[in-house]
Design a protein around this nucleic acid. Sequence first.
DNA 1: GATGAATGAGGCTTCATTCAT
DNA 2: TATGAATGAAGCCTCATTCAT
Lengths: 211, 211, 211, 211
Amino acid sequence: MSHREGTEWRIRVAAIRALAKHGYADLSIKRIGEELGQSSSLLYHYFDDKDDLLLSTLDLVEEEFVDQRGRDEPSNPKEDLADLIDAFFDPFSVTTDDVTTADEIEFDVVLVYVYAELWAQATRDERYRAKITELETRFVDEITRTLERGIEEGQFRETPPTKTAEHIFALFLHELHTKTAVDRDEATEMTRTNLYDLTERELSVDLRNPE
Amino acid sequence: MSHREGTEWRIRVAAIRALAKHGYADLSIKRIGEELGQSSSLLYHYFDDKDDLLLSTLDLVEEEFVDQRGRDEPSNPKEDLADLIDAFFDPFSVTTDDVTTADEIEFDVVLVYVYAELWAQATRDERYRAKITELETRFVDEITRTLERGIEEGQFRETPPTKTAEHIFALFLHELHTKTAVDRDEATEMTRTNLYDLTERELSVDLRNPE
Amino acid sequence: MSHREGTEWRIRVAAIRALAKHGYADLSIKRIGEELGQSSSLLYHYFDDKDDLLLSTLDLVEEEFVDQRGRDEPSNPKEDLADLIDAFFDPFSVTTDDVTTADEIEFDVVLVYVYAELWAQATRDERYRAKITELETRFVDEITRTLERGIEEGQFRETPPTKTAEHIFALFLHELHTKTAVDRDEATEMTRTNLYDLTERELSVDLRNPE
Amino acid sequence: MSHREGTEWRIRVAAIRALAKHGYADLSIKRIGEELGQSSSLLYHYFDDKDDLLLSTLDLVEEEFVDQRGRDEPSNPKEDLADLIDAFFDPFSVTTDDVTTADEIEFDVVLVYVYAELWAQATRDERYRAKITELETRFVDEITRTLERGIEEGQFRETPPTKTAEHIFALFLHELHTKTAVDRDEATEMTRTNLYDLTERELSVDLRNPE
DNA sequence: GATGAATGAGGCTTCATTCAT
DNA sequence: TATGAATGAAGCCTCATTCAT
């Protein structure tokens, strides 16, 4: 995949890693250069300015997401839904401390943290908001389509797919938030339970016990 | 109430307003001074440094929250739950643009935006994380207690209160996120629906149609 | 005179000296700080930015000019004209090398060099152009008024005062230019001759030989 | 004419145009590259560094000047003087705004603006001063020679040619200055008048009314 | 002949903070 | 209590230049 090579791509990756490590508020051009292992002024050959680079970072998050999603052919809705949930929850097995400290974190882990990091910017900058909106729309759409397929195929109970997809996404956010921003261990334990209860009730399907 | 007066309190309020207006990443001592209408060096008489002030800001968020909660005697669990939900959703009738632009925003509106603003910091700074954790614990506890009271009084169906409270909180987060960080109107419309469906199903109570 | 004191005034003076020493193109905030003997960031307490400071510099040139002019009561037109010419030519007894090297140059000498330095900016920046225009207008007006007085009093021959004043100013520019920008010694020697010939012919008065 | 071709010549032209457009203080290698439409690093094949290029730029100004002058055989001194004056005044029919904005300005127009731009540099850099000195000497010499021919042929009154030539040049400078650096319309109108009065008086010849 | 990658130095400006008053 | 003066560090970005291709 050609877009996974070249200096421009390396800079974007460095920006993402630096963002995960230091956070948006403490992210400096200098630190991106350090993460890159090259002169910080180099990035001005490839991006207009800091904002341009950071915005493009969100494109990379999306590209990765698309690549990851497009990898497997959709087949069994129930399994697809389970996979999607796992893919979302997996990164959180890596703790925040690891992310802010370690040097070599797997990329999909880092991406989740970057996402959380840029929420706050989306509140004030419409460019960030537009990108994040698109990303989430895509994500929720994919859940919705999986639900629809399951309903068509009679695997899931009939339920308003959009509403249920949004509900699932809400529980994802809860997980993301409690894992990254607070120390409420009892809460994080509850997310999956609530998620499985939800699917059970809404879809009449139990994702926990694959028979 | 003594803690609502004096220069120290005014500084904290100014910090909160400046935080809501500019965001954590673009919050400077100078801007707090501007919001305060006094010299920025004044705050060094009352706080050790910027961090100290900002941290103390979270105390104020908590104080306000406590005051607000403690105002009314708990009475009817169903009504209490409905009030709690309304209190959370109300601030979002004020748009993000208003918050970042206007000068005189009602305080409880500002607080919600500040809260979203500080999530990201909590990821990296344990002091923020501790405060936010405490705040959320308190908030979820209150929901839990309300549910427990309702169950005791037979107003709600028997349900694991902690789990359900956490589920309600997840939907609160969803609302907070979609209202502040993305333009997904269809999503924001769905939050309340999901919330009411949840209470109906879990608690066998319909908060929408007070008979 | 109160405007001749205080940090703001000292900064403007430092800017002027640095401008004379290094020239507009090589004038940096750092160098102004060095000339001032204080931190370069200090100037941001008194001026919005570099441009603001430099523009204000021209105000100082004007203030000095006004003060200098307003010092003596106008009396004898012939003597006044001679004084005015001397005041303009005097600074050029200090060579360019002195200005760019020495530390303590008399202020009215420096001002002339600053003036030449900012011409080029006036071509591109209307704010500079406006200030320089005003300054020159004032200067030529004063020459004009002196001529008018001389004509009224019968000391000078009847001549269109505006046109002659402008002609005199043209010869001033010639002096300024040849003294600062080129090594054409024969030209500089000729300026005064041309100037005296002009007054003799136009005004029927010989400024060289006060009888 | 070989010196009017090739990449080196194109680079010099680009430098001149960029100089006229942005001014010396804001002239960067990058901008020259943009004006050239090629990579900025190209110029390091033809010039040692920025200074070298800019200095060579003045050679081009001189070459153009020489070409322009050498074009016609000197014939009638009176007509030659009139032509010379016209050639100097013509470029100023193009306004400063045009020069700093438009893309395709006639070359002799641009040259005048470049000349004014480099005065300030000549004050501090002897290499610039040497070139500008030579250029002006040549220019004034040509005026002087024209005057001498006119005197020899009896077309002009006997007058010290050097002094008068310098006086004419002073009025040229006045025109250059008022047209480029200030908004003093009344002054620019007066320059020609003064110039014609001068020739009439000094040379007993009226350039305005060719009978 | 021509380019794009790369860099270190330096540009302007904002920042958090201290201090004397 | 409150302020304005003052500063050093750091921020983002542009610059002139070199080098490999």
